[in-house]
């Protein structure tokens, strides 16, 4: 297990966000993503717990792409991962952040 934390600046807060959004399941090759509004002084913070150790640089690359697509502020993203591939991680985050910004639970 490895715990990784990433922080992004320069995003925009979502107007009247939902209390939380949860997508995915903690199963092999899958992950769960929990998105919540949080008073982080404009930060977007991503906390990852992953069963696959040693992929910090890959997470950084995937999350950079995700933040470029969804530049959000004052958001806490919590991830429990069981070895999902980068493509699956990207899709799950798109799914979660679309729902968060759209204000509906998927």
């Amino acid at each position: 297990m490895e715990t990784l934390t990433y922080e992004y600046r320069g995003g925009r807060p979502v107007n009247s966000p939902p209390p939380s959004v949860l997508v995915g399941v903690v199963g092999s090759g899958n992950l769960e993503v929990l998105v919540e509004p949080a008073p982080l002084g404009g930060l977007c913070r991503v906390e990852v717990q992953t069963a696959a150790v040693g992929f910090g640089a890959t997470w950084q690359a995937v999350l950079d792409d995700v933040f470029a697509r969804h530049p959000l502020a004052d958001v806490r993203i919590s991830i429990n991962d069981v070895g999902a591939t980068p493509a699956v991680v990207g899709l799950r985050l798109d799914q979660a952040l679309d729902a968060f910004a759209g204000g509906t639970q998927p």
């Binding site: 297990m1 903690v26 991962d81």
Partner: peptide, 10 residues
Amino acid sequence: LRQLDTPAAF
């Protein structure tokens, strides 16, 4: 699960 170094679900 944390003690066993295994991913938990929220």
